[in-house]
Design a protein around this nucleic acid. Structure first.
Length: 470
RNA sequence: CGGGGAGUGGCGCAGUGGUAGCGCACCUGCUUUGGGAGCAGGAGGUCGGGGGUUCAAAUCCCCCCUCCCCGACCA
């Protein structure tokens, strides 16, 4: 008799499937206040791995971690006109504290350009203090109209980098460096997500920025998901917060600043890009549990053999978990690990063991192979890298197959029903963006014909990627 | 804020005036275990809140609140 599916099938209702995965893989729960999220241990372990990988790349790019306050005086936000206009509708404001009304309300940071700008202004005196490269890991709050676990929550976790530079060129170059060496490298190499890097149109730009760069992923249902952004803030915040320095001629100069961030949204992106009808699929380089050694039945020495394998794999540097909970049926446990997306499962049971074997199962393809007990520790690291590579290849092929090259707004709208449309920017430029918007389609980013980053949206022959988005 | 829908054990639902039920999950025991185990026995709910009608309200009436989905906003 056919059992009902564990999850709503993707093809039936993708958003529902997503919610099912988040719940059944024990990633997160809704918090008690609207739009808030409780990240459960397994979900948090994925976020911790993301933090570790991103943080290492940020440090390689020369930035140092610091921490700035959650509360920002409301007047700070108002100092940059576009910034305050962009963020005012979604601010949470503290008006009362300590049992009385505050003289000046405090906003719960939606992002920290203002408070960090204020202190950059104090710290930067000389050209010798530049560049000033800061990052912080923090929570921020944005009162969003429509929350979705991980993708858009009222409070979310992120890193926000903030830098100050002596010249416009240096600042712009740094935003590109972060996009390439930190975000793209992490997402492609670790998350196995083939992101498109590009420039946002003026309409999609960060409030207060003169340029916003983005990395965009394609989800399993063909929509776009903005996975990270890197902003060239020009001198807007330097002007508002008086971030100036004396150059080597003794003349006072305004700094050029940047900001850039990635968030817990990446966890949602991971689910939506790689997940299938059996649940999450986590790429090995990210996985907090890369291998689960599962005791089928504790007979014929299976329990002891599993213990030894776990120790051996740990010794080989593999993040491994033992599942010896034989009171629960094999099928249930196999299903649960598949829901959580653990890349490789090692099944240790008396039947195989009698011949000196165990079974290795790949989560991404479901492929099962036999291995001798003695060769497991040597084969697993190789297998993990194979899984990693094939996940990236599969996601890339899937994205490319759903990206259509078109030359009209109408065809772009049609293509965006199932994926991305690549359309000449001159076709969209002007009122095209509005016409697309009427169909809930947006320009995700602009690229040069060779895929590199444009320095202006007025460059000739630019390509616009358009899609529906989350 | 506009348009839809829903509030009943942890989750999913049934129940249109007469003692609050079902499936899954949970607890105990036994038998099981190579793809979501079976049987037996248990625990768990002031039916979103307030008011009203009635001998009697999850059910009818009034008011309020909340949540979900689609859109506008957005990492």
């Amino acid at each position: 008799m056919a059992k009902p599916p564990i999850l709503t099938p993707q093809a039936e209702d993708f958003p529902r499937w997503y919610q099912d995965v988040v719940a059944k893989a024990e990633l997160a729960d809704n918090g008690p206040a609207r739009g808030t999220m409780i990240i459960r241990p397994y979900g948090y372990s994925l976020w911790e791995r993301m933090q570790a990988e991103v943080d290492a790349r940020i440090k390689l790019a020369g930035a140092e971690n610091a921490y700035f306050p959650l509360f920002i005086p409301q007047s700070y936000l108002a100092r940059e006109a576009d910034h305050v206009e962009g963020f005012s509708p979604e601010l949470a404001v503290v008006t009362h504290a300590g049992g009385k009304e505050l003289e000046e309300p405090l906003v719960v940071r939606p992002t920290s350009e203002t408070v960090i700008g204020e202190y950059m202004g104090k710290w930067v005196q000389s050209y010798r203090d530049l560049p000033l490269l800061l990052n912080q890991w923090a929570n921020v709050v944005r009162w969003e109209l429509r929350p979705r676990l991980f993708l858009r929550t009222t409070e979310f976790l992120w890193q926000e980098g903030h830098t100050a530079h002596a010249t416009a060129e240096e600042g712009a170059a740094y935003t590109e460096r972060i996009l390439r060496d930190v975000y793209t490298d992490f997402m492609v190499e670790v998350l196995a997500i083939p992101v498109l890097g590009g420039r946002k149109t003026a309409a999609e730009r960060f409030p207060g920025a003169r340029n916003t760069l983005t990395v965009e992923a394609m989800t399993g249902d063909g929509k776009a998901l903005q996975m990270g952004t890197s902003h060239d803030l020009g001198q807007n915040f330097a002007t508002a917060f008086d971030i100036t320095y004396l150059d080597d001629q003794g003349a006072s100069q305004l700094c050029w600043t940047t900001s850039w961030g990635v968030t817990t949204r990446m966890v949602g992106g991971l689910v939506m890009v790689h997940g299938d009808d059996a649940g999450l699929v986590v790429p090995p380089r990210l996985a907090s549990i890369q291998v689960v050694v599962l005791v089928v039945r504790d007979e014929g020495g299976a329990g002891d053999a599993a213990d030894h394998l776990v120790a051996e794999l740990q010794g080989a540097g593999v993040r491994v978990r033992l599942d010896g909970a034989v009171a629960t049926s094999f099928g249930r446990r196999a299903t649960d690990w598949e829901l959580k997306g653990v890349p490789v499962r090692v099944e240790v049971g008396p039947r195989d063991l009698a011949e000196g074997n165990v079974t290795l199962v790949r989560r991404d393809t479901g492929e099962k192979v036999q291995a001798t007990v003695g060769e497991v520790a040597a084969r697993i690291p190789v297998l993990l890298e194979e899984v990693q590579a094939s996940m990236l290849a599969a996601a890339t092929a899937s994205r490319d197959a759903r990206t259509a090259q078109v030359t009209s707004i109408e065809d772009a709208v049609e293509a965006a029903r199932t994926g991305f449309a690549k359309v000449p920017w001159e076709v969209v430029k002007g009122d095209g963006e509005q016409r697309l918007a009427q169909e809930s389609v947006t320009v995700r980013c602009l690229q040069r014909p060779d895929g590199s980053l444009p320095h202006s949206e007025d460059e000739p022959d630019l390509v616009a990627y358009v899609a529906r988005s989350y």
